[in-house]
Design a protein around this nucleic acid. Structure first.
Lengths: 135, 135
DNA sequence: CGGGATCCTACGGGATACTG
DNA sequence: CAGTATCCCGTAGGATCCCG
């Protein structure tokens, strides 16, 4: 089972021959929903620059409520993307840090981010055109 | 501004030096939320094998309500990922097909999918461990 | 400082019925 | 066949108050 070429404006792409089996698409969909919520990539991105404490992370991300930061971090910890280290001092100190798995996740997510940066204008143009037609 | 290496289990990764500026992370977050809903990648994936009619797509995806298929397709059309072609026959016939932009989107999304397939076990293990500890 | 507990609202998304 | 219109529910996510 080899690949086949697909021609498009940006160049030629190699697409797997039976690329879109439902199970695979489901797996993709799941991970995308996992990282597709409002805050996950922001948090992971900030932690990609090094470990941070709770409120450091909060102000670094900006605009996130403390409830959602907690929820997001718990989810990331549960899935093994982030470690949580508690220092039993007064006042307490809690550090969050990416695991290896977390750093590795940054790679494909970054690739999608590159694509996003390169193509936002095309999307915005398409959107403006569509909205103009269906005004 | 060069890159720096990050060592992890799977190998060594190159991360950009100032990779996680808030604006960039926002852009990434937006595209991820765009494709991170329940059905978008399933629909785009199926259309990646070629154009399909509405109900062909519906049964190909499987489990999607007609309301959500319509909503999903309208969104994809609006953003320029999909074209909608109406044949004014009786009964009507409507074809949906990926644009070049849609095909190009498949590339980074597929990369994330590959990552997902390779790492689901690690995530599941981490999750089981976390749930065991916090039982 | 780093949360937990609660309340509230908006919206994603399913089920069903109707239409050109 | 390919939708539109309506109703309904669950959950994401914000605001607020409280605690060790």
């Amino acid at each position: 089972m080899s690949d086949y070429a697909h021609e498009a404006q940006g160049g030629t792409f190699l697409l797997p021959r039976h690329p879109h089996r439902t199970e695979d698409c489901r797996a993709i969909s799941e991970i995308l929903q996992r990282v597709g919520d409002k805050w996950t990539v922001l948090v992971v991105g900030k932690l990609g620059d090094g470990p941070l404490r709770f409120n450091e992370l909060r102000s670094a991300v900006g605009g996130i409520s403390q409830k959602m930061l907690t929820t997001t971090l718990r989810g990331l910890e549960r899935d093994g993307f982030v470690t949580r280290t508690v220092f039993p001092t007064i006042p307490p100190r809690v550090d969050y840090e990416l695991t290896d798995l977390g750093y590795e996740l940054l790679v494909p997510v970054g690739a999608l981010g590159d694509w996003a940066r390169k193509n936002t204008e095309r999307v915005k143009a398409a959107r403006a055109r569509f909205d103009g037609l269906h005004a």
